[in-house]
Design a protein around this nucleic acid. Structure first.
Lengths: 113, 113
DNA sequence: TGATCATATAATGATATGCTAATATAAAGA
DNA sequence: TCTTTATATTAGCATATCATTATATGATCA
């Protein structure tokens, strides 16, 4: 296996991470702001283990950064050092509307498309 | 499902296509020039059905264009209309060295990394 | 210390993916 | 027409992936 082969495999692994609707949605959310696991669970209406596993994979793949604070684990994008990945994350349709309730008064205003 | 959801799914499908080592290699080859199936089979040392199936998927996903001429089917990139995909294809490590034998005198010079 | 909250991990099952082997199609030439 | 060449398609199998269920860890607080 030469260097180009290694790079090809690494690229493929990264795109596998991006080839999932839920993970793209998470990246779209993290583009707006750092979030804890429970925020993402609430917003995407998915189970906690499922979100946790997606985040673990993306962390292993170097796409997100983890920060622990008390009971919470906060995740944020880690794409500054990866120009073409950053480009891709910018292309994800905005998830900003789903973040509204985090700033607003009530969870009852969550949009459920 | 809203429009953003559709787009998210489409993006995920595209990245699934890119999340395979063989398909990335094929795209890297097609970046250099249009190729027929048998060329790709020879260069990548993979079975004809496997390559054919990968090409079919990429054609379905709109990444490549098919042109039939006589016994041969030629494939080429179809990414001009997709800026961020085009960007990605440019990032694929060069496969140009593997194309040498197509211009050179003998197949015995094929590089097999 | 015991209870609760936030998150992680493990086990399981269903579906998806990629390769191979075998066969089908279709064009070109003898 | 028969054969060869190039490609496509199908079926089968092994592995990978994703969601769920159940359980574990670890921090906070009464």
């Amino acid at each position: 296996m030469d260097t180009a082969t290694d790079t090809l495999d690494k690229m493929a692994e990264t795109f596998k991470l991006l080839g999932d609707r839920t993970r793209l949605a998470i990246l779209g959310l993290l583009r707006e702001k750092e979030l804890c696991v429970c925020n993402i669970v609430d917003i995407l209406h998915m189970s906690q283990p499922s979100i946790s596993q997606h985040l673990r994979k993306m962390k292993a793949g170097g796409l997100v950064h983890e920060r622990r604070q008390g009971k919470w684990t906060y995740y944020s994008l880690k794409v500054e050092d990866k120009p073409y990945i950053q480009q891709i994350v910018m292309e994800i349709p905005s998830q900003a509307s789903k973040l509204k309730e985090l700033d607003g008064p009530s969870l009852s205003t969550v949009s459920c498309d």
